[in-house]
């Protein structure tokens, strides 16, 4: 193992990591913002709403991410004239945009499916209680259904985030210099395959650990009601007294 190679390549690899994290973050934010309306459409009883959402989710879960990436990056080139007419070519000619766009569309599909399951798992009784208090429509979703659904979905969603983070390594194929992109370039130049890829793998691992750590924290905060109460600061005698 040649440690000097690792030390020398570290600045480039870290620069790649910055792009990796950027792309992950952007795709997640856009994907999540799309996933909420998609999931709400998916649970609707109106076929005009649920059918398109169903088709969308089916397509993005049913086809490989790499194919989706190629479709958008190379496929975009096929429709250059039309895209130019629409003023969209400036986006589609950028590998960066195509990468974020396809990752966002992909994670939106998966996240919508996760949310759909979670919305379906919100206890009917708690929804009825909210209705009985006069909540309906948006308010009901914003205050009761979605907060409960997010809690039910967070574990599955943390998997999706980790998956997406690692899936960003595919963008190096469309010329982006993410962590994997830099690793490939350095390996092509130095042939230090093991040193570089193991370093890259460890860097991915560190960030993955960070992601899981953050989710664990959030999950912990959200699940206080599922754990034992940690402090019993209430005077039991006072309670019994106040009841009579």
């Amino acid at each position: 193992m040649d440690f000097q190679v690792i030390i020398d390549s570290m600045p480039s690899l870290l620069e790649g990591m910055v792009l990796t994290i950027q792309i992950t973050f952007l795709s997640l934010v856009i994907g999540f913002a799309m996933a909420i309306p998609l999931a709400l459409m998916r649970v609707s009883k109106n076929p005009l709403l649920w059918m398109p959402a169903y088709g969308y989710i089916f397509f993005f879960r049913g086809t490989p991410l790499l194919v989706q990436l190629f479709l958008i990056y190379f496929g975009g080139g096929q429709f250059r004239e039309q895209l130019e007419m629409l003023g969209l070519w400036v986006f589609f000619r950028e590998a960066y945009f195509c990468a974020v766009f396809s990752l966002a569309l992909n994670t939106a599909g998966y996240t919508a499916e996760i949310l759909r399951g979670a919305i379906g798992a919100v206890p009917t009784g708690e929804i009825e209680a909210a209705k009985a208090c006069g909540m309906h429509g948006q308010l009901l979703y914003r205050r009761i259904v979605l907060p409960k659904a997010f809690r039910l979905a967070i574990q599955a969603y943390s998997n999706e985030v980790v998956f997406l983070f690692q899936a960003t390594s595919l963008v190096s194929i469309i010329t982006l210099m993410d962590l994997t992109g830099y690793a490939r370039v350095i390996v092509a130049r130095t042939f230090d395959i093991y040193e570089i890829y193991i370093t890259a793998a460890l860097l991915y691992l560190c960030v993955t650990y960070g992601i899981l750590y953050v989710f664990k924290k959030v999950e912990h905060r959200w699940s206080a009601h599922l754990r034992q109460r940690d402090t019993d600061d209430v005077d039991e005698a006072a309670i019994t007294a106040s009841m009579h």
Binding site: E128, A129, H225
Partner: peptide
């Protein structure tokens, strides 16, 4: 519904 307070057999408090 805001004028009709409902109490359910299984409480249905919002657990979170």
């Amino acid at each position: 519904r805001t004028k009709l307070g409902m109490v359910f057999q299984s409480f249905n408090l919002w657990s979170h």
